[in-house]
């Protein structure tokens, strides 16, 4: 796999590219990854409700959901009892893809989003001004906005609406909930997503979700090793008769240059809510700037034409 865009600026400090291989064929839908992520990263609560879509709680990745387990219930041929119809349950722990060509990073106008020395993509909370451009540039719908105040936090909304975050902090702390950081209250108006546990990587640890995964559905390591392992695993599955096994985002020649977090899927990507052939929007940057230049020229010609007949 190619290095991520921009990692060359680290020169000698660049590290081997690290990432996730999420093997959905062994996911059991326990959501330990969701919980571990929330615990470690102090990600605010994102709804303790059922969506009505199988065992899915949150429905999608978002500012406060950095790992999302998708559940799909299907009628499918039984892989073991040949020819028989059976029920099939697909489960997939989705996450930020940490793209080689990252649309969010390309369009961020403040430089808040950057490429780390490990080739991952991270948003700096203290720089982000909440413009929301990255949200529209992500082909996977990963990034979300934490709305200001406590409006987006159902748990905090009742106690805290209409007060400033500083007041909230005191109010919640005195509520008997113990120490709670400002970050847990959300409401900073900024954009948030998975950091691939940048702080843990810097200390030689694996990300919280991979650490917690009880079936090694989430595997963490140097990306090249993971890709090799994933190809082998996918080949084994196909050989064993699971002909629908396929790798997703493991090819560096795809529309995003391959991903730092790729997947083994058992159905079409869109079944899991993933785009089938994602393309980084900046791939068409030349066309877009060209169209803007033509349009600006046309505007100048139009104004010139308006004056052409001279004064009346």
């Amino acid at each position: 796999m190619k290095p991520g865009d921009g990692v060359e600026t680290y020169e000698a400090e660049a590290q081997p590219r690290l990432g996730f291989f999420t093997d959905t064929s062994v996911c059991i839908g326990c959501k330990a990854c969701e919980v571990a992520c929330k615990e470690w990263n102090l990600v605010p609560e994102d709804g303790l409700a059922w969506t009505g879509h199988s065992y899915d709680n949150t429905g999608e990745l978002n500012a406060n959901t950095w790992r999302h387990v998708a559940f799909i219930e299907q009628q499918a041929p039984d892989p073991i009892k040949q020819g028989k119809q059976d029920f099939r349950w697909l489960m997939e722990s989705d996450v930020c893809k940490h793209c080689t060509h990252a649309g969010c990073l390309d369009v961020c106008p403040t430089g808040a989003i950057f490429r780390t020395e490990f080739g991952t993509v991270v948003i700096q909370d203290d720089v982000c001004n909440g413009c929301g451009y990255c949200v529209t540039a992500c082909p996977f719908g990963v990034i979300g906005k934490r709305e200001r105040a406590a409006a987006s936090s159902p748990a905090g909304a009742g106690r805290t609406s209409g007060q400033s975050p500083d007041v909230l902090q005191t109010a919640v702390a005195s509520d008997g909930l113990g120490a709670i950081t400002k970050r847990e209250l959300g409401g900073d108006g900024g954009m948030h997503k998975c950091t691939l546990c940048y702080d843990r990587l810097q200390n030689g640890m694996e990300p919280a979700c991979a650490k917690a995964c009880p079936t090694d559905s989430i595997q963490f390591g140097p990306l090249d090793e993971l890709v090799e392992r994933a190809r082998e695993r996918c080949g084994d599955l196909v050989e064993a008769g699971v002909s629908e096994a396929r790798l997703y985002l493991a090819d560096e020649n795809d529309g995003i240059g391959g991903a730092g977090a790729f997947f083994l899927l058992l159905d079409e990507p869109e079944v899991y809510g993933l785009p089938p052939q994602p393309i980084v929007p900046t791939k068409n940057l030349g066309t877009i700037w060209g169209a803007a230049a033509v349009a600006a020229g046309a505007l100048a010609v139009g104004v010139a034409a308006a004056f052409l007949r001279g004064e009346e």
Binding site: D106, P109, T110, G111, V127, G130, G189
Partner: peptide
Amino acid sequence: LGRPLRFLNMLRVFKVTSPM
């Protein structure tokens, strides 16, 4: 902007990949 006071953060960089 989600954080209006940080508008000026946009004036610390110039990126041709970002029309914004």
